[in-house]
């Protein structure tokens, strides 16, 4: 079990780091918004995995809340991209 958890965490961390490299290479607004979404989902995945290792009981609550609330960050980024116009 521990092997599965840490393999997954390492893969997700690698994905987040690759996204950050992308932001360092080119800083146009659309890329930054896409990468911030990717890093958010990586963080959710890492949290789920670390909680799985600790046999926590709230993991599915966290997953469903993260799925439902994630839209707020993306939509606010979309509003920032258009400078508040719709």
């Amino acid at each position: 079990m521990t092997v599965i958890v840490w393999t997954t965490v390492v893969i997700l961390l690698l994905a987040a780091v690759l996204g950050l490299v992308r932001v360092m290479l080119s800083r146009d607004d659309a890329s930054v918004a896409a990468v911030s979404d990717l890093v958010y989902f990586c963080a959710v995945g890492i949290f789920l995995m670390v909680g799985l290792n600790a046999e926590s009981i709230v993991l599915l609550d966290v997953a469903s809340l993260a799925a439902l609330v994630g839209i707020l960050a993306t939509v606010s980024l979309a509003r920032i991209l258009t400078r508040g116009r719709r």
Binding site: I4, T7, T8, I11, L12, A15, V35
Partner: peptide
């Protein structure tokens, strides 16, 4: 399931690194 899902996230990150414009990254 866990490692496969993480690999899909990683593939998406690699695609984001290699694609050429913001819309393709979204």
């Amino acid at each position: 399931l866990c490692i496969g899902g993480a690999i899909f996230v990683l593939l998406s990150a690699i695609a984001m690194l290699r694609s050429r414009d913001g819309l393709s990254r979204i």
